[in-house]
Simulated scan of single mutants.
Amino acid sequence: MKIAFVINDHATEQVKYSTPTMGYAAYKRGHEVFYIGVGELGYASDGNLTALCKTISDRKFKSQETYFKAVQEQELTKISSEDLDVLFLRNDPSDEIGEREWAQNAAFIFGEIAVRNNVLVVNHPTSLASAVNKMYFQHFPEILRPETIISRDENEIREFFKSQKQKMILKPLKGSGGTNVFRMDKKNEHNLSQTIEAISRDGYVIAQEYLPAATKGDTRLILMNGEPLKVDDAYAVIQRVNAEGDIRSNIHAGGKPDKVKVTDQMLELAEIVRPKLVQDGMFLVGIDIVGDKLMEINVFSPGGLNMMSRAYEKDFAAEVIKSIERKVHYKNLYGDYIDNSRLATL
């Protein structure tokens, strides 16, 4: 199998990220693995997707670290969709905000070309394009979600603040990693106008019900093909505990990972989101749970597989690659009879 991972940029990709973890798992299983920066995608006159990429072959490595270091040291080489079985879109559009606005939608656009070129593309690019901001979360049943409004009107946000007994979370509609997330209450109400103005400079503001359980952090659960990812009796799940004095539990924002037991309530939340994820061709997704609610659904580059694998001593990345192998097998058997959006979650 020939599988390419689209990342934001080679210079910013880190060995501890989940994409190199899955790439190494695929490499160890004997597959050809390629890494493509989103700015290295292109379109050829013959209608094929083209790309510059980094890859390595015919070498054995003792660890993910030595493997990915060797990959990063390689010169860029050219490939096309004719060279690929799978294109795995793992770039995060929110990382491009304010820096490379043109890069936010590029992977979806070129991913759709790859689909037409008979390449399996996960997650399904058309659905990813519709999920480029947190509004996608509002398409799921209300029972899952904290009470929320999305607006740029300060008066409307202030009214919501009052209705929430002067406790709420403010964050941007676009963004990830805990950037520009604020808890507002009576103590800092005097900063409310300034906070709304700062967030709204870059677009819409999400005002969200504050969940007291958030003081204990949140739980990241990985879903694959709409189901919780599991190896033997272990789930791919981690508790992300807030850094002291910080409302954010994101690992990039200083949150600490810890093992956690999956509860029936978590599984019920996962079951509620499953139908739409399957319908949308969302192969690999991370859901963030606080109490009995979901805070976010990460469909772009859900992380944590490396931490989860270490915590439970299970190779979750290999399980992801095995699932992709089955999809390639189905595609070879059925050809165009199964749409990419359906094949992505089979």
Score class of each variant (00 low, 15 high):
residue 301 S to I: 15
residue 324 I to W: 14
residue 116 R to M: 03
residue 324 I to S: 15
residue 207 A to L: 00
residue 288 D to F: 06
residue 226 G to N: 00
residue 4 A to M: 04
residue 207 A to W: 00
residue 238 I to T: 09
residue 208 Q to L: 02
residue 238 I to L: 11
residue 240 R to L: 03
residue 171 K to M: 08
residue 219 T to Q: 11
residue 338 I to F: 07
residue 168 M to G: 05
residue 175 G to I: 01
residue 176 S to N: 05
residue 145 R to H: 05
residue 173 L to V: 04
residue 138 Q to H: 02
residue 164 Q to V: 06
residue 139 H to G: 05
residue 159 E to R: 04
residue 135 M to A: 03
residue 228 P to A: 01
residue 141 P to Q: 06
residue 186 K to S: 05
residue 36 I to D: 12
residue 323 S to Q: 06
residue 84 L to M: 08
residue 24 Y to E: 07
residue 95 D to L: 08
residue 118 N to R: 02
residue 216 K to D: 14
residue 205 V to H: 03
residue 90 R to M: 13
residue 274 R to T: 12
residue 8 N to L: 10
residue 108 F to P: 04
residue 246 D to V: 14
residue 7 I to S: 06
residue 202 D to P: 06
residue 28 K to N: 08
residue 91 N to I: 14
residue 134 K to E: 05
residue 139 H to T: 09
residue 251 I to T: 15
residue 156 E to I: 08
residue 215 T to V: 07
residue 7 I to C: 09
residue 299 V to E: 15
residue 220 R to E: 06
residue 140 F to D: 10
residue 8 N to I: 13
residue 112 E to G: 04
residue 36 I to R: 02
residue 244 E to P: 04
residue 235 Y to L: 04
residue 303 G to M: 12
residue 328 V to M: 02
residue 85 D to M: 03
residue 120 L to P: 03
residue 3 I to N: 07
residue 323 S to K: 12
residue 69 K to H: 08
residue 308 M to L: 10
residue 53 C to S: 15
residue 70 A to G: 10
residue 126 T to W: 00
residue 325 E to K: 05
residue 12 T to G: 02
residue 21 T to L: 09
residue 314 K to S: 03
residue 215 T to Y: 04
residue 98 G to F: 01
residue 267 L to G: 07
residue 43 Y to A: 11
residue 142 E to N: 04
residue 31 H to Q: 01
residue 76 L to T: 15
residue 280 D to R: 15
residue 283 F to C: 09
residue 53 C to F: 05
residue 104 Q to C: 03
residue 131 A to D: 10
residue 95 D to W: 05
residue 159 E to T: 04
residue 160 F to Y: 01
residue 32 E to Q: 15
residue 205 V to S: 03
residue 83 D to W: 01
residue 315 D to Q: 02
residue 286 G to M: 15
residue 9 D to V: 07
residue 200 S to I: 01
